[in-house]
Design a protein around this nucleic acid. Structure first.
Lengths: 180, 180
DNA sequence: TGAATCATGTAAACAGTTACATGATTGG
DNA sequence: CCAATCATGTAACTGTTTACATGATTCA
């Protein structure tokens, strides 16, 4: 049998799920909603990942499950964080090195090798990225958050969006001015 | 036998390698050096990936190989971009949608769930990220680049580094002021 | 009637990483 | 003599995604 030691490192998705559970017990379905509403813009696992991760967390003693029968709704499994789970999350935050960033940026790759392509199409890609950033900015600007940690992530989102917008505007201008 | 259609989408690493080959014929070893000196800070595949990708590109007709015997040095395989390869790269740049960004940021996850951990350790993580960004900025500031596309990626790096530094400074200050 | 929501998963594939392996040559 | 550079790979693994599957209920 496979005995997994408690000190084995969490995957990022496992840590994210434990983190969400630290806000209270939830089902897999609830977690998916939560992700969208909170960490969604910097962490978005596939739903199948969430369902894959949950039983593993239970096996490792990081979470407990309780089956909840519902009438009028399908039954659900509600997971809650255990003390060991909270410790594991703490360890992950404190000890797991965060990989250096900026990492893997396909758009930049397109720009860097952009001379072989149509400049108009390239500009359109950049414009699209800018529109996304503008939408993110408006979305984040409207959030009133009183938790310090959540506020910091929002502020990062705003800082990031601002950087994208400034960069994109200039890039759009300069690439439009170049012959194609 | 497995017949791969020419129109199958490139992986990002394949596109990156084709892009590098568009600057002239190179061996796998050369490509690794190139990555470090150019796209390295936003695209860094493992070396084994490069060697895995190259024969695949040849199979698909996107690159040609030539074995070069060297005395005083191990032999090497020099790859060059074919016309089909250039077309594939162009198609990738123009047609493959670039995944929205910011995507997958483990440090932000740490910050968001940071209240369960030691604030000092958290601040240290952020400080570390800031130091990386400051190093990146100094590195990029020194580059004199006359190619427009390359210059745009450098400018993004500077914009990004600036955003990280501003954000981190404030986060460090605010988290240090909070009780742990 | 039919789309959206609630609710949970399986199977297969995939891109990419880590660790390992080999061996010659050059320069301090 | 030893570390670094040149040069190329294989094997095993892993985290994650995509596509598929099921079925009840609510609301327009």
């Amino acid at each position: 049998m496979t005995v997994r030691t408690k000190t084995a490192q969490l995957t990022t998705t496992e840590a994210a799920v434990l983190g969400l559970l630290s806000h209270g017990p939830r089902s897999g379905y609830d977690l998916r909603k939560d992700v969208e509403a909170s960490v969604g813009y910097f962490w978005g696992p596939a739903k199948s990942q969430i369902y894959a991760v949950l039983p593993r967390l239970v096996e490792d003693g990081y979470a407990g499950v309780r089956k909840v029968a519902q009438d009028q709704r399908p039954d659900k499994s509600v997971y809650r964080l255990t003390r060991a789970g909270r410790d594991a999350l703490k360890r992950w935050i404190e000890e797991t090195p965060a990989p250096p960033d900026p990492d893997r940026n396909p758009l930049l790759l397109k720009v860097f090798f952009g001379e072989v392509a149509s400049q108009d199409v390239l500009v359109e890609h950049i414009r699209q990225r800018r529109l996304e950033a503008e939408a993110l900015r408006s979305y984040l600007e409207e959030i009133e958050e009183d938790d310090l940690h959540a506020r910091l992530t929002i502020r990062w989102g705003l800082e990031y969006a601002g950087a994208v917008i400034r960069w994109a505007k200039r890039a759009e201008r300069e690439l439009s001015g170049s012959r194609r």
